[in-house]
Design a protein around this nucleic acid. Structure first.
Lengths: 237, 237
DNA sequence: TTTACTAGGATTGTCAACAATCCTCACGGA
DNA sequence: TCCGTGAGGATTGTTGACAATCCTAGTAAA
């Protein structure tokens, strides 16, 4: 097929390394606060320090790494306020994605989301306790991708990685498997029905549930958000 | 004062270069599509290619630069669909910021926004035609910063740069100066009144105005968003 | 005229060595 | 015991050189 042609230029080395680093961070292989020694990592990836540093700079601009000059690069550590910030930001992004889906090509979005939901059903039967949360996040990834917005996808990507970091770091009370599948099913149903308002309400309730479980006492709806101190020196630049 | 102490570690070279590149991109000094020759830029910044490449990798992950392996790095070019995407994304972020302001420390936000509004009034008297649009964007930057959300600030930062690129690239019909100031004033007034719903409506109308001017025919409210092709090879990684 | 091929030049990708800075820890004095 | 001081070692920051790849002409054959 003609559509199977792919660019002969494979992705850059920095790109590959960056992805592997992101994976390691979100799975907890590189826990928050870890210092990333350049020499050691370069040896592990079997590249020199140049490409490795380029990859790390990408993660710095994404906010996954914190840079301290002449000290090194560290995996960000998530303070309590960050959990709220992550979920509130996700709520904003996914709400926007849902709106664009409802006002755009809703049908193909429903197809893709149903597929993701199928993955959740499969994961529910998987003995691996991480399978379902993984499938859950893939559903939300599919939701944003179905919006067709390049920028929403980019922003959601980082937020979902941070969500995984939260799940890996925090002692969490997982919701009941059935509830979890049901909540997502209802979203798709509301989409099929063309009921935008209900989609947004369900999505909002879904995020509210999550934040309540991970950071008891916080709420997206009322009460002032916990204070989040400003970024370190090097992140804004 | 104790609060005047500043970290002894000045920001990294890559950070400085990255900021200057962002400035050059958003002012139009590096127009969309421009190839960034490493040797030439390194000479201009008076650093070697190492730090420069690190800085450019940051912009790649922010979506401001597009990387083609063995070809070079290029400033992204904004297609018609991007204008919609940028403004729709901004609307989502700034809406979330406004909500957090209304449910958090509204008063100090009003103070900061009033200050930004003062900058707009000053700019309205400035003969430089770019002064007012600049002040306008600074208002929106202040809005997001006042939300106290690290992540909203980070995401808005890139979006506002892209907004500036739009303004620099597109032939635009600027709104009347008085209207421009009035719209922002009303937002602050609604904040003071504690009327969250009205703040959101005003903000939404404000973004709708902007998108209508820059991309006639597009609308945030109805109609399917123009299709946005997926990212290039290297951006997602 | 069009197409295939081949230097030539220029640009990017990668690397290893050098320079600068910081942290640790032992040492000595108060 | 506590605090300042200063090697020593390790890590990061930067550089220039080398290798690999790509684009552009220019040439020749169909």
């Amino acid at each position: 097929m003609l559509s199977d042609i792919e660019p002969v230029n494979r992705e850059s080395t920095a790109s590959i390394i960056a992805r592997q680093l992101r994976d390691a961070i979100m799975t907890g292989a590189l826990p928050p606060g870890t210092q990333l020694g350049e020499a050691e990592l370069a040896a592990r990836f079997e590249v020199s320090r140049g490409p490795l540093r380029e990859a790390m700079q990408r993660l710095v601009s994404e906010g996954l790494l914190r840079s301290e000059r002449h000290r090194g690069l560290f995996v960000i550590d998530l303070e309590p306020g960050d959990v709220y910030d992550i979920y509130a930001s996700r709520a904003a992004i996914e709400r926007a994605a849902a709106i664009r889906i409802m006002r755009g090509d809703t049908e193909s979005a429903v197809v893709e989301l149903s597929e993701a939901l199928g993955g959740m059903v499969d994961a529910a039967a998987d003995p691996d306790p991480n399978a379902l949360p993984e499938a859950d996040l893939r559903f939300h990834e599919a939701l944003v991708r179905a919006s067709g917005s390049r920028r929403l996808v980019r922003m959601a990507h980082t937020l979902l990685i941070e969500t995984r970091m939260c799940l890996a770091a925090l002692q969490r009370t997982d919701p009941d498997t059935d509830d979890r599948v049901t909540e997502h099913t209802e979203i798709i149903e509301a989409m099929k029905a063309g009921d935008e308002q209900r989609v947004l309400e369900l999505l909002d309730a879904h995020m509210e549930d999550a934040i309540t479980r991970l950071a008891p006492g916080s709420s997206l709806h009322s009460g002032p958000p916990p204070s989040v101190p400003p970024d370190g020196v090097d992140i804004a630049g």
